[in-house]
């Protein structure tokens, strides 16, 4: 249960971090709160030669309101999002979801950007930010690019990040006054990994009717349109939507995903 011997750097600027991350002579990985990478290091599932700690970079800690969207720095912790010292444009989504991520001791260290970069299909932000229609700003030595969440998560632990790139910030669009949202996850124990996640958003002002089935052992499954909200969230419908994922062929997983999404939908319909 001890990590391999790695080198470690704690740059103070994003440019310095990107410079280190672009090194090709060593196997290098960025690390933020180390709440996912830490266990992987201890279990030796990850064996980097150099860790670049990005948590001392001031610009990655910022939260700011840019017009009608909230920009959240990659190194903002779940605990800070839970405690809500920022203008919440999401009508409670951010603090409510942050509060149910793992445990407070983990939330104090774990970050929103780290969670996205890790891309565990069961992770809360992976699914919720997909439902919210957030964008991910990726930084590399070549500059910045913005990728919608639906194109950012590619699969299990797989993202659009190229070698040397990191998540810099996340853009969360403001919900309208009439927006309603629901979130439900099925966990064997409070705070443990989700076995099925349902995240839904209805925002009439922006024409959004979105359901997301998460923790499917693949990328989040996005189902847009009114069908599931109008009683259409059945096992048969879910089997079709989840086709191709392992969940579709396992009757228990299919039932669990149907229940998770149904309960999330019930929160917006009540």
């Amino acid at each position: 249960m001890k990590a391999v011997d790695f080198d470690y750097a704690q740059p103070a600027t994003l440019d310095a971090a990107l410079e280190l991350l672009s090194r090709e002579d060593v196997m290098v990985r960025p690390v933020a709160g180390s709440q996912s990478l830490g266990p992987m290091l201890n279990l030796r599932l990850a064996q980097p030669e150099l860790l670049v700690d990005i948590t001392r970079i001031a610009e990655l800690q910022a939260i700011r309101l840019d017009g009608d969207r909230l920009t959240i720095g990659a190194c903002v912790t779940h605990a800070r999002l839970e405690d809500g010292d920022y203008p919440d444009v999401t009508r409670g989504v951010l603090p409510s979801v942050a509060a149910v991520i793992a445990y407070r001791a983990v939330r104090n260290r774990g970050t929103i950007g780290g969670s996205l970069a890790h891309a565990d299909p069961a992770a809360d932000w992976v699914n919720v930010l997909t439902a919210l229609g957030a964008d991910v700003v990726i930084a590399g030595t070549g500059g910045r690019r913005t990728v919608p969440m639906t194109d950012f998560i590619l699969g299990v632990f797989e993202t659009a990040l190229q070698p040397g790139e990191i998540v810099a910030e996340i853009h969360v669009p403001a919900l309208s006054d009439r927006a309603r949202w629901g979130y439900y996850k099925v966990c064997r124990k409070t705070g443990e990994f989700s076995h099925a996640t349902g995240a839904v958003l209805i925002d009439p002002a922006r024409g959004v009717q979105r359901c997301v089935a998460g923790a499917t052992s693949g990328k989040p499954v996005v189902i847009d349109g009114p069908a599931l909200f109008e009683g259409g969230c059945t096992e048969a419908a879910m089997a079709a939507h989840l086709a191709g994922s392992p969940a579709a062929d396992d009757p228990i997983a299919l039932k669990t995903h149907t229940v998770a999404l149904k309960r999330a939908i019930a929160q917006v319909m009540s």
Binding site: S34, Q35, G38, P39, N42, A105, V106, N108, R109
Partner: peptide
């Protein structure tokens, strides 16, 4: 030693944290 059991919980700058997955 992988962040699940909580036995190693300590305070960093006054906030609880897992000492086994913090270097």
């Amino acid at each position: 030693e992988h962040g699940v059991c909580g036995a190693c919980t300590i305070l960093i700058d006054g906030e609880p944290a897992r000492s086994c997955i913090t270097f």
